[in-house]
Amino acid sequence: MSDSDIYLDYELLGTNRDNIRSIANLLEGPCRSMANVNGSDMGVDRLEQRMDDFGDEWEYGIGKLAEFSDAAATCLDEVLNGFRDIDEELSRAFQEN
Rank of each mutant, 00 (worst) to 15 (best):
Met1Phe: 08
Met1Glu: 11
Asp3Thr: 10
Asp3Gln: 08
Ser4Lys: 11
Asp5Gln: 07
Asp5His: 06
Ile6Lys: 08
Ile6Ser: 05
Leu8Gln: 08
Tyr10Thr: 13
Thr15Gln: 15
Thr15Cys: 03
Arg17Glu: 11
Arg17Ile: 03
Arg17Ser: 08
Arg17Cys: 02
Asn19Arg: 11
Arg21Cys: 01
Arg21Val: 01
Ser22Met: 08
Ile23Ala: 11
Ala24Gly: 13
Ala24Trp: 02
Asn25Val: 02
Asn25Tyr: 02
Asn25Met: 01
Leu26Lys: 07
Leu27Tyr: 03
Glu28Arg: 15
Pro30Val: 11
Pro30Gly: 07
Pro30Ala: 10
Arg32Gly: 10
Arg32Ala: 15
Ser33Val: 01
Ser33Met: 10
Asn36Ile: 04
Asn38Met: 06
Asn38Leu: 06
Gly39Trp: 04
Gly39Val: 10
Ser40Gly: 02
Ser40Trp: 00
Asp41Ser: 08
Met42Cys: 10
Met42Gln: 09
Leu47Asn: 05
Glu48Asn: 14
Glu48Gly: 10
Gln49Ser: 11
Met51Pro: 00
Asp53Trp: 01
Phe54Gly: 02
Asp56Ile: 06
Glu57Leu: 08
Glu59Cys: 13
Gly61Ser: 15
Gly61Asn: 12
Gly61Val: 09
Ile62Ser: 00
Gly63Lys: 01
Gly63Asn: 04
Gly63Ile: 04
Gly63Tyr: 01
Lys64Glu: 05
Ala66Tyr: 05
Ala66Met: 06
Glu67Gly: 07
Glu67Gln: 13
Glu67Ser: 12
Phe68Val: 14
Ala71Phe: 04
Ala71Met: 12
Ala72Gly: 02
Ala73His: 06
Thr74Trp: 05
Cys75Gln: 15
Val79Pro: 00
Leu80Ala: 07
Asn81Trp: 02
Asn81Phe: 01
Asn81His: 08
Asn81Ser: 12
Gly82His: 04
Gly82Tyr: 03
Asp85Tyr: 01
Asp85Trp: 00
Asp85Gly: 00
Ile86Asn: 01
Asp87Met: 06
Asp87Arg: 10
Asp87Leu: 07
Asp87His: 11
Glu88Ser: 13
Glu88Ala: 14
Glu88Asn: 15
Leu90Ala: 12
Leu90Gln: 12
Ser91Pro: 00
Ser91Met: 03
Ser91Thr: 15
Arg92Asp: 13
Phe94Pro: 00
Glu96Arg: 14
